[in-house]
Design a protein around this nucleic acid. Sequence first.
RNA 1: UGGGGGAUAGUUUAGCGGUAAAACUCCCGGCUCUGACCCGGGCAUCCUUGGUUCGAAUCCAGGUCCCCCAGCCA
Length: 572
Amino acid sequence: MENDTVRTGTTGTGREVAAADTGRDFIRDIVQSDLEAGRVQSVVTRFPPEPNGFLHLGHAKSICLNFGVAQDFGGRCHLRFDDTNPVKEEQAFIDAIQRDVHWLGFDWGMHLHHASDYFEQLYEWAEHLIGTGKAYVDDTPPEAMRAQRGTLTEPGQNSPFRTRSIDENLDLFRRMRAGEFPNGARVLRAKIDMASGNMNLRDPVLYRILHATHPRTGDAWCIYPTYDFAHGQSDAIEGITHSVCTLEFEDHRPLYDWFIENLPVPSRPHQYEFARLNLTYTVLSKRHLTRLVREGHVSGWDDPRMPTLAGIRRRGVPAAALREFVRRVGVARAYSVVDVAMLDSAVRDTLNPVAERRMAVLRPLKLIIENYPEGQTEKLTAMNHPDNPDAGSREITFGRELYVEQEDFMENPPKKFFRLSPGREVRLRWGYFVTCREIVKDTNGTVVALRCTYDPASKGGNSPDGRKVQATLHWVAAADAVQAEVRLYSHLFNRPDPGADGDALDDLNPQSLDVLTGCLVEPALQCARIGEAVQFERNGYFAADPDTRPDRLVFNRTVGLRDTWAKVQARP
RNA sequence: UGGGGGAUAGUUUAGCGGUAAAACUCCCGGCUCUGACCCGGGCAUCCUUGGUUCGAAUCCAGGUCCCCCAGCCA
């Protein structure tokens, strides 16, 4: 978009490197130099989720990296489901993942693949390894195998079945496939080195018996390849040039390469690792997220408090904000924990220039204008966006009875409190100057209404005499305000490092959800589109929740505005 | 004597032998019909100790600390 010439490569062979994107991270550096040196003709990456849960922010980083690199260098990126373990995987997850990747703004075109597409080929390659004496069928039970594997500091011991003949191995493996043996009875292992310092090289399991129905292959198979045996070869089949994964797979790389070197694969992919995303006050492991859902701590995978793409989307965060966040975070090899404030900031920065403004009072306090005629109302004009006249304007109703925010009034204001207090004049946004004259309290002493006067000359928001006020408040008119439910969210966990000493779920924040039911919003909000954030002036960004019905408005707070006053106030 | 990786502001990154850059956070100030946005300003003995060099965050050596690995999960 910013540079069509570079993108389309019209100036030469089509192999040129997009110079404008040089050096943004070490992965791009590698790709660039591979392209320049002619080690690859064009870049092919892949995003390879296992369909056993919903995509989350960590995946967003990987998606943006893999699809982004392909985009930057004029290559392509595949979506490949790593569906090698049927007991954990579900079609519903497969569907959700595709929806989420598309929503994030990326497209795999024709290249939707599955590891299960290659089961037959992988099987053939397994027989090939057996044929070359590099794999064997092992009857050792799981516990015994663990004991034989040794420890981090002690070498393992060879399995007694390691020396089986090629013919016997082939026969046994074929019978494994044929379904002759129960789950766990035997496995196929690579014959590498039981004394290796790298645990992954101590004769890793290639196939295990799993009598389970696979979401795609059904009951065609009862043996399934492991991640290690499937991943690199799938990459090779698809012509992946740069197989990018997270740091914990670093010591799988020698194994990845071992398969590539010992099998007649059609291409030579290379694996590169980057540091996965961690966020403060958040948990990003599928294990924890699954528990949150299953144990009912949240309403589902798309609960707006969840760090899943579905949850974040429901909350009102636009995909562009996520892409911007990922861009700001960068890609490196050092372990890191990103401050969740960085996400909030990216969301605000993305929303601010585009979100239309509306007025909504979350905790209403009645305001009566004594010198405004009873029964009368009038229309005022409000800009939809203060910095963008093209966004147009709307009419709002003004009248004798209004509602303002409870927190915008203090009977005994501290220093620097600019809002309403006895005798204080403020501006009602797009409306008039009003001055607080009297406080109405109930028998408990709670303030239930404010009696004010307004200055008719200040219509539109400015006084002809040039008088200034220190505050401008949002408000709604009693005459046509609409009831709404507003859901306020805060961190799901109450410490920046959930689980740091114990179970992460013990660190759940019991106050992560605050449902406000008596909110009053301006009528224009009745047409708010689900999931599309608008700014409630002075309150934050909000998006209509899918729970919204014609007679029941429900809004999610996407993110609050920066609130300097709240910070000042909170100080000791 | 297991193996593999990593250390730059509070956080995340840039820097690729020429005198530390950006974003976020925080602090101070300005502007303002959103205490928002925006605009100024502040915040780093580059883990450490030695070495190479006219010159080191960058190169070399030793040390320290942190992360990952013992699933028939990915």
